[in-house]
């Protein structure tokens, strides 16, 4: 129905015609790099917030966007409705485990790293779709799951009560990452730190990732998923998913916050030490068929990304 499509399209185009955002209908390479670091992005606004490495508990700095918290608070009640707005996340969840398994099994350590008693930290756990599933795996020792939204976290806690298998393995904490105590020794860190569908909602991703990094055990993995910033991802995630098909709630995605895979690699491997073995898997949602791995699609849409913290040399 063209009369309905047009206003939506115009709204989106207006929205994107900001001085720093070019028209989305251009090839990928012409996009500017996302302002990845808080210090450059907010240089004019506030040059005085605490440095990323400072974890003073009195710091007022937060990686959490208040607008995002209120958006997800509003979605909390429908988080576990399999036919609700989070259905597409539920459908994606099994692929997260496949990806983590493929990352962990791809290393050639001698002896191989232990595959049991794994400790997970799930950052931005939302209603707990991934956290619950990780806790159910027989190879999991414990899952700590955190989220800054109190409404979402209370939904997560209430839902976890429905499964007696989760009680001894899953802990929810209503906190942003900067208030979570850093492990006292590297070996007390987590085998897997997961940040699924979070980074595109974070205003200063570099600072945020710097806060997450110390929680990964040497030899452990930092695993995330997000969306590449391309004209196609704007069409699929904003125009089609939110405005036309409405399978994702309006206002969930801010295309300008998307990060491309190259930017992720640059951040971890060129600008930071201690990371190795980057892994990537592009996935595409096909209505009626679900999520499918499509090699190469990480350049244009949703993708998983993982890096391994360099193991301790014995």
């Amino acid at each position: 129905m063209p009369p309905r499509i047009k206003p939506a399209l115009l709204r989106q185009l207006r929205y994107l015609h900001l001085p720093s955002s070019p028209s989305p209908v251009r090839c990928t390479s012409s996009f500017p790099s996302r302002s990845f670091s808080a210090t450059t992005a907010s240089a004019s606004a506030s040059a005085s917030h605490s440095s990323p490495n400072s974890t003073s508990p009195n710091s007022t700095f937060t990686t959490v966007s208040p607008d995002e918290v209120s958006h997800f608070n509003a979605l909390a009640s429908s988080w576990w409705d399999p036919q609700g707005p989070s259905r597409i996340l539920h459908l994606m969840n099994p692929l997260r485990h496949d990806f983590i398994r493929s990352c962990r099994s791809s290393v050639l350590d001698v002896p191989p790293p232990p595959s049991n008693n794994l400790k997970y930290l799930d950052i931005g756990c939302g209603g707990g779709i991934f956290a619950e599933s990780a806790a159910r795996l027989p190879t999991t020792a414990s899952v700590t799951a955190i989220d800054p939204s109190p409404e979402v976290l209370s939904v997560a806690k209430a839902h976890a009560k429905r499964d007696p298998a989760l009680r001894s393995k899953l802990t929810y904490l209503n906190t942003p990452i900067e208030n979570l105590p850093v492990p006292s020794t590297p070996q007390d860190g987590y085998d897997i730190v997961s940040i699924f569908e979070v980074i595109e909602h974070v205003p200063y991703p570099a600072d945020f990732l710097d806060r997450c990094a110390p929680f990964v055990k040497p030899g452990g993995w930092l695993v995330l998923s997000t969306i590449a910033r391309t004209w196609l991802s704007w069409v699929t995630t904003n125009l089609v998913a939110e405005d036309l098909l409405r399978i994702v709630p309006k206002g969930t995605h801010d295309w300008r916050k998307y990060i491309n895979e190259e930017e992720m690699k640059t951040y971890f491997l060129q600008k930071r030490a201690q990371w190795t073995e980057p892994r990537c898997m592009g996935v595409v949602y096909v209505p009626g068929l679900g999520w499918k791995e499509v090699p190469g699609s990480e350049k244009v849409g949703n993708y998983f990304f993982a890096v391994r913290k360099v193991p301790d040399t014995a």
């Binding site: 485990h97 806790a135 159910r136 499964d163």
Partner: peptide, 14 residues
């Protein structure tokens, strides 16, 4: 089997 290997609650309709 798929549910168990992916940590899903095997009883849910989904």
């Amino acid at each position: 089997e798929f549910s168990v290997s992916h940590g899903q609650d095997l009883g849910t309709r989904m």
